[in-house]
């Protein structure tokens, strides 16, 4: 695992704490945006080989809605905001008040996609800025892009720069959900090295 060989449990704990802080900020942002109570659970931090990565995050060919940002700066990486289709539809309907919004068959409503992109951007932005505050590192996120497709296809794309130097990714898994609902709404995943 070359680059990640020196990684100790202690380091994973630090990453977990960073993920925690980031998720708390993202949850606050989402809560304000939706005017709803949002729960956040403690993230797990894992070292996962590429072989297993897509399956670890659910089925590799499961359809998801995703926002992807490239992060440049002191610690370049990829940041994903990945949401299940049903959760994304509910989120967009809530924000735009467009009850007919669907992600089942394209073309998707442009206004809805734009709203989804914006929500993803706000969440990723608040996650990233708390990460920057905590680590005193500079991050420059790219303009976000949206894709509704297979989870594995989307994830592998973000893994490309990382795949040149290793076969493992650090997954900081964060779950944010609307209170009193059991199905998961979304989970941002960031892989930084």
């Amino acid at each position: 695992m070359d680059l990640l060989k020196g990684l100790k449990p202690y380091h994973l704990d630090v990453l977990k704490e960073i993920g925690n802080i980031g998720a708390a900020h993202a949850a606050t942002a989402l809560s304000q945006l939706l005017n709803k109570k949002i729960d956040m659970n403690v993230p797990s931090v894992r070292l996962v080989s590429f072989h297993d990565l897509p399956e670890q995050l659910g089925e590799a060919d499961a359809k998801v809605a995703a926002i992807f940002l490239r992060v440049e700066g002191d610690a370049p990486g990829s940041m994903f905001f990945i949401a299940q289709i049903e959760g994304s539809e509910r989120l967009v309907k809530h924000v735009t008040k467009r009850a007919e919004f669907q992600l089942d068959t394209p073309p998707y409503d442009e206004m809805g996609i734009s709203a989804f992109l914006e929500v993803g951007n706000i969440l990723a932005g608040s996650y990233l800025s708390s990460l920057a505050d905590f680590t005193k590192l500079s991050f420059y996120p790219s303009v976000p892009e949206v894709s509704v497709d297979m989870a594995g296809a989307i994830l592998s794309y973000g893994l490309l720069p990382l795949s040149q130097v290793g076969d493992y990714a650090i997954v900081i898994d964060t779950m944010i959900r609307e209170r009193l609902r059991t199905n998961k709404l979304k989970r941002p995943i960031s892989s930084f090295t």
Binding site: D61, D149, M150, A151, G152, A153
Partner: peptide, 13 residues
């Protein structure tokens, strides 16, 4: 012949 072989979620791969 006893098996099929599959890979899931090809993006740019």
């Amino acid at each position: 012949t006893l098996n099929t072989i599959r890979t899931s979620g090809l993006g740019s791969c």
